[in-house]
Design a protein around this nucleic acid. Structure first.
Length: 644
DNA sequence: CCAGTATCCCTTTTT
DNA sequence: GGGATACTGG
């Protein structure tokens, strides 16, 4: 049933203008809590309402979850047609397009996506290969190399430029780094791998070099909308430009003050320069904040006021009253945790559900002590961000087996699963892979060969696994079960904490139940890995389960809670010690703090332990975060936990 | 050539 | 306090 939407009643004038905007480029500068999502959903609904075919609308967002959420909301506003709007991340969109046109970008036989750690493994193998005795130990580690290559790709710069600017101390190995970069590129092509960056690079290339495909794509997607535009990078901006084609119906929404992904190449200049690239751009500002009370907004305005470059906008709210934020000095880390727990329990008792309270922090490990205390007190919580689940070795082991089943020439994964076996080291593993590759008959080649390893019991078991799997067709989840069954003995031998880890494996199998194709499971694991760490949190889509939320600030983007605690508001932690020497990095930390603080509706607390010795820097950290230091008491009152 | 032990490193944030 | 790398003995 088609609900009749009365746009002018449900939206404020600025939102309404954006929603009614029809054709051409539109830039919406949307302050925190100003109804950005609302504006996007209403615009989707309005377009569909007026007869635009849903399939011709493309909504690009930062996570696929937020795209789905918006389309669901639009469907609730109007009707189910909105669910047919195309939505997703740049990466998932790129994947969808490239799968269709793989041939045109030189991947005649398709490709698979490798995630960050796969890329590191591959680069690590090459690094070992190319490392001579003279460069022993001095070459950047594999993570650093991966970083360099990825930055170059995302910023559209050469590897040389990145090394020169960001890693000058490695400049003398430039030649070798360059060789490695080329070798990495070659390996990826040979093995039909694309990393995250490649998805964007090849999409851009495709659109650039194939005008016919570009025209076709542009006419398919007549209306483009991009959310979180402040966190796009150069290639993404180029892609947006190419996609806007002749129709130039491109709406981008963002807040330059909330740009927090520069470390992965995002450039908030994209949003600043948008009107230069599309000179006929209409700019709309959303400045009314519907989220936070006045005292909170007053503080966040002070925080962001210290940023140097931004679109000017002044947020205001009509939510007067409310308590001012509070800065609390705790005597130790543990006292910080205990203060927080007490406060949480108090607020909870006064009627606020636990899932409406969030604890935010700069880096994932900042919550360790708190997690221990929460467990001790039996307070249920969910931790978001930090990417633990998919990163853990046992999960990667299982995925490696599945990847080999999907692509028997996946060198990284073969290497990984062979190394798990007794008496097989790097050399033997590579030899075996070479054989499999030369035989060119997939897993069967492996199953039916004999290898001259003296003690090859492990190999026989592995062969049996693959031949069992080959014998009968199984569902994705059954496949997972078979691999887990095979892997369990290895797990027990490898880890003392195997009970906990084997529960993770069971969860993984449950997740697999949702998939019909192994390929789509593996793609999702690479493109949209579960964001929460371990435990059953992964599956509970029920948003009303009662758990305290622990989250990195990055993962909290776009969300809001009744009460927000920002812990470790200690200079050197937040802002991170690594950022304090660089003007630009520091400003990003400032924006990060702004994002954190603007998540709060009613209550906002900052806490920091008064004195901490930092091992890494060898420094004593004893100042509160500089972004909230020296703020007048009437805006940010201060308190010590020893006073309580 | 593998496996076990010593040593050093660094520890953001994520598609 | 952990993970990756380097070294050494079997």
């Amino acid at each position: 049933m088609n609900r009749r939407i009365i746009y002018e009643k449900e939206l404020n004038p600025s939102q309404l203008e954006a929603v009614r905007f029809n054709r051409g480029p539109l830039l919406v500068i949307a302050g925190a809590g100003s109804g950005k999502t609302r504006t996007l959903t209403y615009r989707v609904a309005r377009l569909v309402d007026e007869g635009v075919p849903p399939g011709s609308i493309l909504l690009l967002t930062f996570t696929r979850k937020s795209a789905q959420e918006m389309l669901k909301r639009a469907a609730r506003l109007l009707d189910s047609r909105c669910q047919n709007v195309s939505g997703g991340t740049f990466h998932s969109f790129a994947y969808a397009v490239l799968r269709r046109y793989a041939f045109e970008v030189g991947f005649e036989n398709g490709f698979s996506i490798i995630d960050r750690s796969d890329a590191e493994d591959l680069i690590g193998m090459l690094r070992k290969e190319f490392m001579g005795p003279s460069t022993h130990g001095a070459l950047p580690r594999k993570q650093t190399l991966t970083n360099i290559f990825s930055r170059a790709a995302n910023k559209n710069l050469s590897v040389e430029e990145i090394v020169e600017n960001d890693y000058p101390h490695f400049f003398r190995y430039m030649e070798l780094i360059h060789t490695l970069s080329k070798a990495y590129r070659k390996q990826k092509i040979e093995h039909r791998f694309m990393d995250y960056d490649d998805l964007l690079i090849y999409l851009k290339m495709l659109l650039n070099e194939h005008p016919d495909i570009r025209d076709k794509t542009c006419s398919t997607y007549q209306y483009l909308m991009v959310d979180e535009y402040q966190d796009t990078n150069k290639i993404q901006a180029d892609i947006v430009y190419l996609l806007s084609g002749k129709h130039r119906n491109i709406m981008v929404v963002g807040d330059d003050s909330q740009s927090i992904y520069a470390f992965r190449g995002a450039n908030f200049e994209n949003i600043m320069r948008f009107p230069d690239i599309f000179p006929e751009t209409r700019i709309i500002r959303l400045e009314e904040n519907y989220r936070s009370t006045e005292p909170i907004l007053k503080l966040t305005n002070v925080i962001i006021d210290r940023a140097t470059r931004k679109y000017s906008k002044i947020l205001f709210t009509r939510k007067t009253g409310g308590t001012p934020p509070l800065l609390i000095e705790a005597q130790s880390e543990n006292r910080q945790s205990r203060f927080l727990i007490e406060k949480v329990l108090g607020i909870h008792r006064s009627g606020v559900p636990l899932n409406q309270i969030a604890v935010l922090f700069r880096a994932s490990f900042h919550s360790f002590d708190l997690e221990i205390e929460l467990n001790r007190e039996g307070i249920p919580f969910i931790k978001v961000g930090g990417g633990k689940f998919i990163e853990s070795a046992h999960i990667k082991d299982i995925l490696a087996h599945l990847k080999v089943i999907f692509n028997p020439y996946d060198r990284i994964s073969w290497y990984r699963i062979l190394l798990l076996l007794d008496h097989i080291g790097p050399k033997t593993a590579l030899d075996i892979y070479e054989r499999i590759s030369a035989l060119n008959s997939g897993c069967a080649g492996f199953v039916h060969s004999s290898f001259k390893t003296s003690r090859s019991q492990g190999l026989d078991t592995l062969k049996r696994l693959f031949s069992d799997i080959d014998a009968e067709p199984m569902s994705v989840a059954r496949l997972g079960e078979a691999v887990v069954r095979y892997y369990l003995p290895i797990l027990r031998k490898k880890y003392d904490d195997h009970p906990k880890r084997s529960r993770d494996l069971e969860h993984l199998v449950v997740m697999m139940e949702r998939y019909e194709q192994l390929e789509s499971f593996l793609t999702d694991m690479a493109l949209e890995p579960p964001n929460t760490s371990q435990n059953d949190a992964v599956f509970s889509d029920t948003s009303n389960d009662e758990r305290l939320v622990l989250s990195t600030v990055h993962s909290a983007k776009g969300l809001e809670w009744h009460t927000v605690f920002i812990i470790w508001a200690l200079d050197g932690r937040f802002p991170s010690i690594h950022a304090v020497h660089d003007e630009k990095d520091l400003e990003e930390e400032l924006r990060l703090m702004y994002v954190a603080a603007t998540r709060a509706r009613e209550n906002l607390f900052f806490t920091y332990p008064v004195q901490i010795y930092d091992r890494i820097s060898g420094m004593v950290l004893n100042r509160p975060c500089r972004f909230i230091d020296n703020i007048p008491d009437d805006i940010l009152p201060k308190l010590s936990d020893s006073d309580l």
